[in-house]
Design a protein around this nucleic acid. Sequence first.
DNA 1: TAACTTTTATTAATGCTTAAATTATTTGTT
DNA 2: AACAAATAATTTAAGCATTAATAAAAGTTA
Lengths: 396, 396
Amino acid sequence: MQYSRINNKKMKSINKQNVMNTIRKFGKISRKDLTKRTKLTTGTITNLTDELLKSKLIQEKGSGESEGGRKPILLELNPRAGYAIGLELNTSQIWCALSDFKGEIIDKLHERVGFIEDRDGVIDSMVACIDEILRRNNVDKAAVFGIGLAVPGPFNDQKGVIVNPPNFRGWHNVPIRDIIEERTGIKTYAEKETQSSVLGEYWFGLGNGYKRIFQANVYEIGIGGGFLVDGNIFHGDRFCSMELGHTVVKIDGRPCICGSRGCLEAQANGLAAVRYARESRSGSGALGGLDEISLDDVVAGAEAGDAVCVMAIEKCAYYLGVSLMNAIGLLAPDAIVFGGDFMAKSRLLFEKTTEHLNSHPYFIHAGEVKKFRASFGIDAGAIGGIATVLNAFSEI
Amino acid sequence: MQYSRINNKKMKSINKQNVMNTIRKFGKISRKDLTKRTKLTTGTITNLTDELLKSKLIQEKGSGESEGGRKPILLELNPRAGYAIGLELNTSQIWCALSDFKGEIIDKLHERVGFIEDRDGVIDSMVACIDEILRRNNVDKAAVFGIGLAVPGPFNDQKGVIVNPPNFRGWHNVPIRDIIEERTGIKTYAEKETQSSVLGEYWFGLGNGYKRIFQANVYEIGIGGGFLVDGNIFHGDRFCSMELGHTVVKIDGRPCICGSRGCLEAQANGLAAVRYARESRSGSGALGGLDEISLDDVVAGAEAGDAVCVMAIEKCAYYLGVSLMNAIGLLAPDAIVFGGDFMAKSRLLFEKTTEHLNSHPYFIHAGEVKKFRASFGIDAGAIGGIATVLNAFSEI
DNA sequence: TAACTTTTATTAATGCTTAAATTATTTGTT
DNA sequence: AACAAATAATTTAAGCATTAATAAAAGTTA
C-alpha cells in the first residue's frame, strides 16, 4: 500500500481511527479485546481510549463476562456524541434520515420531488428537509458531524459534482456537495447512490467481514454499481467509477437513454421486464389493456408461475448475469449485494441471476462469491449517506 | 484509506520506503528536493539517506547546478546494491531478464517452450533460465533481491497459484511462486502477465504520473487486463482480477477456449482478425491458399489499404472498444495502455480502438483518458517482473 | 575578500509506542 | 472469610522517530 509521510501525529491519528473503527464494528468491546484486534499494546489502548472517553466520543457501558478474573469493562460509541444526516436524491424523491453517532436511525423524512428539472427548487427542498429533520428532533447544527448525500451517477466523486445524469435534465456539472455544505453550514460528503448503498451495507448490513464487495442496484428505471475495497469506496479518477448501468451488455441492443445502445440499464431494468412481457403477449395475440401492465404485475405474474412473466424476468436476469460476470472477472470481489427496488420485489430475478453466476464454465470461483440481497430498501442510499459521514469521521 | 497498526518502526519503514521510491522515480535527486517531494523535514531526510548510504542501497553521484548557494549533492540508487530477475512464462516461450538495482537491464535470455503440457519440464526450464542468466553474468544468488514472475491468468495473486489457464493443459492449481522460490532459494513474487506489464510501464515506461492505469494486452492468441491504483497492482480476493479477455462482449458470440461464448478474447484477438479476413474473402468468392493467411498478412494488408483486412482489424477494434469502454465505466482510469503483439503490430487497431473510446455519447470523460501504446514489446512481462521485485522491496 | 544564499548536518525537544512492572478486580478454593 | 490465582487495566520508564531550531559547509556575487 502506498503511504504518504508519517509522523507522530499522523501515527496517533491512524491508530486512534483504528480503535474507533474497531469499536464501531463490534458495538461493545473491552480494552483487552481492542488490543487483540488492533494489535496495539495495552498501554496505547489505555491512552487512546482515555482520550476518546474525555472527548465523549465513546463511553463505558457495563461489563462483560469474567474469564476467570477481573471482568472487562465494555466500551461503546457514545450515541450522543453527535449526529449524522443521510440524504438520497433521485428523480422522484428525497429520502432523508437522521442518526446518532452509533448509526441508530432517529428519524426519517421523505418528500416527493415535483419537477426534477427545477434544479434550484429541488436543492431548496433538500435543504428544507435537512432543516426540518433537525428542527423536529431538536438537534443543533453544531452537533451534526456531517451530511452524506447519495446522488445519481455519473458523479465526479473527487469534486462532488453531479455530471450529467440522463434523467436529470438541466443538472449539468452541479457541485452539489459544496452547495449543500454552503447552504447548511454543515460538513457535507457525497457519493453516487449505489456506492453509498454498499457502504451502508458494510457498516450496518451484511457486508461486514468481506474485503471486496460489489453491489448492483437494479431499479425499475436505473441500474447502478458500487464497490468497496477493505471498507473503502472505490473511487474513480476525476470521474465516477462503477457505472454498471451503462456498460454495454448487448451490442446493438435497445437504445438507452444515455444515447448508447444495449446498455445493461436498457436491457435489464424493471421497465425492460415490462416491455419483454408486453412484447411477448402481443406477439401471442393476446389483447386488452396490456399497455397498462406494470412491473408489479409482471413480478406477481412470475411469482404465480405465468410463463410470459417468468420469461420476462429471466431475460433481465440473464443480462444481469452477463454484466455481473464481467464485473466479477475484472474486480474479483468476495461478495455481491443485490439491491434496488426491482431486485427487492422479485425473488426470481435474484435467483436466476445468481444461478447464472454460479454456472460459468471458466470463472469457477464466481460460484464461491457470497451473494445476498441488500439489507435496506428505499432508504439504502440515505443509510449509506450516514455511513459515509461516520466513516469519514477521521479527523479526531 | 485503511491503515493497520503503526508504530515507530513501521513509521520509519514507510518514510524510508517513500524516500526510496522518490529517488527511484527521479533518478537523481538532492536531499533538498527529497524534503520537498516527501514532505519530510531536512533532519529526517539526512537521517534516512544516511542509513540508506550506509547500507549501500543508494550512493552520492555528482552535484547539481547551484541556485545561488551551495551546490546540491545528488543521490541515486546504487546499481550494484543488488539484482532483480523478471521472468515471463507463456504457452510458447520463457523470457527472462536480469537487471541491476536501478532497473537497468543487464542481460536477457529467451527460451522456447517445447510442450507446455510438460509441466515439470517447463518448470525445470524456468529454473534453468534463472541459473543460466546468473551464471553467465557472474551474479551470486545472495545478491538477488528477488524474482518476479509474470504468468498467465487466471491466477490467484494472493497465494501465487496458477489456477487453470485454458492454454495450459495439466496446469491446475500450480503454486508457481512457492515452487520457484523453493527451487531457486530466491525470494519470489508472481503476478498475472498483464498486471506485471502495467507495473513495468509505470516504473520504466510512460505510466508514471497517472493515478489509475488500465492496461489491455491484445495478443494473437490471448487478451489480458491489468490495473494499477497509485502505483499498486489492483489485486482480487483469492482470485485474479482484471480477466479482461474472458469478459463477454458479444452474447452468443464465438465459442471461446474457456468454454463460454463471445468472450473478448474470442472476438478480438489476432486469430479473430485472421478469421474475419478469411471469412470475408471466401464469402466474396476468392480462393487459393487463403487458409494460410497469417496475422502478419492481415496487418500488412490493412496497412496497404486492403478493404478486407481493414474490415477485419476494425472489427476487432470495435469489440475491444466496447469491452474497454465497459472497463472504463467501472474503473474510471486516467490512462489506458495498449500492449500485446497484435496491438504492437497494428497501428490501425490502436487508432480505431481509441477512436471508439473517444466517441461515446455519454461517458464523455472517456475521451479525456490518456491513451498510449505500451513501451515494451515481447519482454514487457519480464520487465514488469523486475518492477514487481523492486517495488516489493519494502522491508528495508 | 566579505557578505549572502543555498544545502546539509547537528542537537535538543517533543510525542508517540512499547515493554515491564504495578495495581485493580473477579473467581475459585480452602 | 481469607487467600491464591487469573484476568483486566494502568502506570512508568525507556526507546525511537520526527521536528524545529541552529550550526556548519559550500558555493555565488559584488
